[in-house]
Design a protein around this nucleic acid. Structure first.
Lengths: 340, 340
DNA sequence: GGAGTCTTCCAAAGCGCTTTGGTCATTTTG
DNA sequence: CAAAATGACCAAAGCGCTTTGGAAGACTCC
């Protein structure tokens, strides 16, 4: 059932039927009712390909997915997706993932914009002066950044959490508990979130006249194995830290394993706070010693970003507003006063 | 730059240019070269929306994503996606995720087929007599099932791993090591993979005149917490198992924690084998006691499914061929002879 | 040398929508 | 009361591609 058939059936022109269905004012309310009713009865759904060719609107949001044999997609992605999908569903939006060579995403961005394959895109895991942000900004497609970039001469819309604040609070607590040697096991420090977290820790230490020493900072992809390695390296130093702030729950698994291997205990020998993105399948309260965390649901972020994208597509949201969400500090058994 | 402009520029008709570009035979090779050359020089890319309206082909594969506040996307998904994306990228395919109410995916399948939004779909985590498989089969869109369903009066194309064989081997090894009381910590037993795994364990036990007792089987969503709970329940029975086969690495984390909480050791008091889908961020060899596993890369499966989907779209693959991949049994420190 | 057969190209008709630029009554306005 | 404005509708022109149904010329074949 297409528009032609439907309009013929109603003895109306395609124009009128189309307008009636799309809520244009220049159609009699009585007529509109007839049309809407008939459309529903016959299960008429406008062909999206046709509509798309005519209007350029696709009803889809896009994400350029970096791929490659050596590229791992972040497991956080799936939680983010849950939130995004949940919102998108209720608004009849689909998500298209365009796989791209991790080293050349620009081509793909240009393609999906030139071809009008999606109405809006989001960008995740941004770095300072991220080229994708600059590109998408000049290409003129609606977008939201999940996280923050830095160092542009323009503003852009983003939704981020207060990574600096979170790690500032975490470090401040540890310092208050008497810790003097803090370490940070961070994610990839080319990404903004990691930079912000480090900044937060440094600021907290500085406030008490302390510093974060270089050998007390590790920046690695967030795997269990890297968490283990980092912790070993830190704890086997001559002057090991008595507290660690850790950027992910998965890395924290490795830290806990390293501590155990070394015959140490948490929180007796080491206090530990990790960031928790809230996974359903791994919970900090279930660690052998319940883990203190800075907590922020990445799923909620996904939903929020879908919401903002939808708003931008429909023109409801404009401008370059950035929003920064506060992060909870949840204290559990893994922190204690510094050992004597 | 569109077809009209390009053909005008070449003093050819749109027909000829289109045919030249799409490799039709009725165009002079010399002319084709001119056309292809000019197209490249001017960066001409046919508008996908237009092509789509004309041909019905979208260059996209689809996945209906179950969503909802209480629905969690499996973290395996992200690894699967890595493989799928990697192949899709090299063949200029995009993936569209259509979020659907987890309890009503049918509507969404019907929509994406009726609207010709994608050229093919895949289905994951199938159950016996899975309605999605039956639906998609009657709707007539090319598809591949990742995993297996059962109990249809038709065949369908799938790619699965030999879950039964894998768990059969694992259980057989444990029995050979003298274990008489085996337990299975399984995933959701409404899904085929879980049924197959249980079947594999039962068969191995039966071969030695043993049985898998009901109180030795747990079927739960695969979270760390559920692994812990299941292990506690099993090990606190009056006649606890001396070996456990476990359906996921994440659950195995919980099992290990439970064992430790109970003051037991692996493999002294308990042998443990888990299934490993091969995550970059959590490796069985890095467990405190290196974990024996049945191993199969879900990422490879993703790539293979993309490949088969592409083949079906282009008509290279037809019929209902199912393929079953063997699974490696990797023995590490977590298994030993049964305690006396 | 006229009938067939290729080869190579083209004009125009879709695909199914949206949107422009009207028309024709009916109301409102000065 | 003529002129202007409004309300309700329509025909047809896009959107940019593919594909159908020729057509013109060159070549073969008795």
């Amino acid at each position: 059932m297409n528009l032609k058939q439907l309009s013929h059936m109603l003895a109306l022109s395609q124009t009128t039927v189309s307008r009636a269905l799309n809520g244009y004012p220049e159609v009699n309310e009585e007529t509109r009712r007839r049309v809407v009713d008939a459309a529903k009865r016959h299960g008429y759904r406008p062909n999206p390909s046709a509509r798309r060719l005519a209007t350029g609107k696709t009803g889809m949001i896009g994400y350029v997915l970096p791929t490659g044999a050596t590229v791992d997609i972040d497991p956080h992605f799936v939680e983010f997706l849950s939130g995004l999908g949940d919102y998108a569903r209720s608004h009849e939006l689909d998500l298209v993932l365009s796989p791209a060579d991790a080293d050349d995403q620009e081509t793909t961005y240009r393609r999906i914009v030139a071809n009008r394959q999606v109405d809006a895109v989001y960008i995740s895991s941004p770095r300072p002066a991220d080229r994708r942000v600059a590109l998408v900004n000049t290409l003129g497609i609606p977008f939201i950044v999940h996280g923050r970039s830095e160092g542009f001469d323009f503003d852009y819309p983003f939704t981020d959490i207060d990574n600096e604040g979170a790690f500032h609070e975490a470090a401040r607590l540890l310092v208050q508990l008497g810790h003097r040697r803090l370490a940070l096991i961070n994610g990839d420090d080319r990404e903004t979130f990691a930079i912000h977290r480090e900044r937060g820790v440094r600021r907290a230490l500085a406030a008490s006249g302390l510093v974060l020493r270089d050998q007390h900072v590790c920046s690695l992809t967030m795997t269990e194995e890297n968490g283990y390695r980092a912790a070993r390296r830190l704890l086997e130093q001559s002057d090991p830290p008595t507290a660690i702030a850790c950027s992910s729950l998965i890395m924290a698994l490795g830290v806990v394993r390293a501590v155990r291997d070394l015959g140490l205990t948490i929180p007796g020998d080491l206090s530990l706070i990790a960031h928790d993105d809230v996974f359903p399948w791994l919970k900090p309260e279930n660690f052998s010693v319940p883990l203190s965390t800075t907590r922020s649901s990445i799923r909620l972020a996904g939903a929020r970003i879908a919401e903002r994208l939808a708003a931008r597509i429909s023109g409801l949201e404009q401008g370059a507003r950035g929003e920064v969400w506060p992060v909870d500090l949840v204290v559990r058994g893994s922190v204690a006063g510094a050992p004597a």
